[in-house]
Design a protein around this nucleic acid. Structure first.
Length: 200
DNA sequence: AACTAGCTCAACCGCATTCCT
DNA sequence: TAGGAATGCGGTTGAGCTAGT
């Protein structure tokens, strides 16, 4: 029905990007700005599909991409946001300047899932596993855990907001983007009355 | 030194959503 | 308003690296 967004006719490169390809993409975007991704590869002389170029730019080549280890406060923020938003990686990443959705997703799956599990918290729904052995010896784990307790249990028990104890955490939210990305229409709005301001 | 298991992360894939005519 | 094109998103894969045996 719909034609594939990438024509896999066999003349497109796949796999890791070479330095030359990176440079071509950087040079082209510097010269022309962000144009149509579909036409970019041809115009830039790249044997890649537009999707691949977009991903490479957003996740790796963008000048404002922050690389390296996640700070402890970033970890806590990811955990809190995941408790509220679920696997909405792009929304979570939008709250972490310089981080990409792919990076956050990878970090969640490789580090934070295990961290929460080791603390006796189900990483999928952020609820305490009652019969789990809790490891409270690690100080950062304690801090993280207590923050999660506040954010999740606090929500669950927030009767004045009308939340029931068994309310699902997959809430509808009103979320404003970081100021650098915000536009007049750039926000998600829910029609229900449950509005959580994630940050004051 | 050689092998293996586990981990990390860049990249791919397919579906969903938005945009445009 | 419908339908196709373009873009965005989240799940998954696999290559490369490292630690353990």
């Amino acid at each position: 029905m719909r034609s594939p967004c990438c024509d896999n006719r066999g003349n497109n490169n796949k796999g890791a990007w070479s330095k030359e390809e990176d440079q071509k993409l950087i040079d082209y975007i510097r010269a022309h700005g962000r144009v149509c991704w579909r036409s970019l590869p041809k115009a830039a002389g790249l044997l890649r599909c537009g999707k691949s170029c977009r991903l490479r730019w957003i996740n790796y080549l963008r000048p404002d991409v922050k690389r390296g280890r996640f700070e402890e406060d970033e970890e806590d923020l990811i955990i809190k946001l995941h408790a509220l938003l679920g696997n909405r990686w792009s929304l979570i990443a939008g709250r972490l300047p310089g981080r990409t959705d792919n990076e956050v997703k990878n970090y969640w799956n490789s580090h934070l899932r295990k961290k929460l599990a080791s603390m006796g918290i189900d990483p999928d729904n952020h609820r305490v596993i009652h019969n789990a052995r809790l490891h409270r010896s690690h100080s950062s784990s304690n801090a993280t855990r207590s923050s999660i307790d506040k954010s999740t249990n606090g929500l669950q028990n927030n009767s004045e907001n009308g939340f029931r104890d068994d309310d699902d955490l997959n809430l509808d939210l009103t979320i404003s983007l970081p100021s650098s990305q915000r536009t007049g229409s750039d926000h998600l709005q829910n029609t229900a009355s449950r509005t959580l301001l994630l940050f004051p």
